[in-house]
Simulated scan of single mutants.
Amino acid sequence: MSNEVTVQIIVSEDMEIHQVGQSQMTKVVNPALVMRVPFVPTGLSLAIMVITTGIDFSKEHKMTIKIFDPEKDETLYTTNENTLNLPNIVSDNFNFNLDLKNVPFKHNGMFEVHFILNGETTIHKFKVIGNEDLTVPGTIDGNK
């Protein structure tokens, strides 16, 4: 396998994991580039799938996944740094799946998923749009 790691990040409303024999099958439910919600601020439930290929599992790796708000320069969610030490894995594709509940999105806008592997960052952008903006002008989180 080559030394180059390839990464694809998918944001969706949900994911379902089914056991099929010795392996698992993951179904992505309603993948989206725009997550529409009734109002902001909101606690949004979403799923993140990070698909990778090219990871050398004979070595130890450091990995973090986070949701970042570039407008406020704020991390909304993080796995913190995890050590991957999976020497018995032989796979062309390896998935990292997150099923998140009530992540706080305080305003409409563009957000980012960061997948960081050994200091190398892959970024996927997605948008959150509320049908109604409930922020109050002049408050800490107000965006008007």
Rank of each mutant, 00 (worst) to 15 (best):
D92A: 07
L98F: 10
D56T: 06
F105D: 06
T53K: 04
M63T: 12
I123V: 15
I17V: 15
V50K: 09
H107Y: 02
I65V: 15
V103D: 10
T75G: 02
S12I: 01
L76F: 06
D92F: 00
S45Q: 10
I17A: 10
G142P: 05
E13N: 05
S91F: 04
N108I: 03
S45T: 09
N82A: 12
I116Q: 07
V7F: 04
N85M: 06
V90C: 04
T64K: 08
D73F: 07
I17S: 07
T122H: 08
S12T: 05
H114K: 05
N131R: 09
K101C: 11
M110C: 11
G138V: 01
L84W: 14
E120W: 00
T53Q: 11
N108C: 11
L100G: 08
H114L: 09
T6K: 09
M15K: 04
T42Y: 10
E112Q: 14
P104S: 04
S91V: 02
T52Q: 02
I51P: 05
K59G: 09
T135E: 07
T52E: 04
E112V: 12
K62V: 13
I10M: 03
Q24M: 12
T64Q: 14
N93M: 14
N82Q: 15
E16L: 07
L84D: 13
T122Y: 10
E81N: 09
R36H: 07
Q19H: 13
H114P: 13
G21L: 04
E16I: 13
E71I: 09
L86I: 12
Q8E: 14
N93H: 08
T122R: 08
N118Y: 10
G119N: 05
S2G: 10
V128M: 01
E60S: 15
Q19N: 14
S58E: 09
N82Y: 06
I123Y: 02
V128N: 07
L76Y: 12
V20E: 10
F94H: 11
V29K: 00
K27H: 11
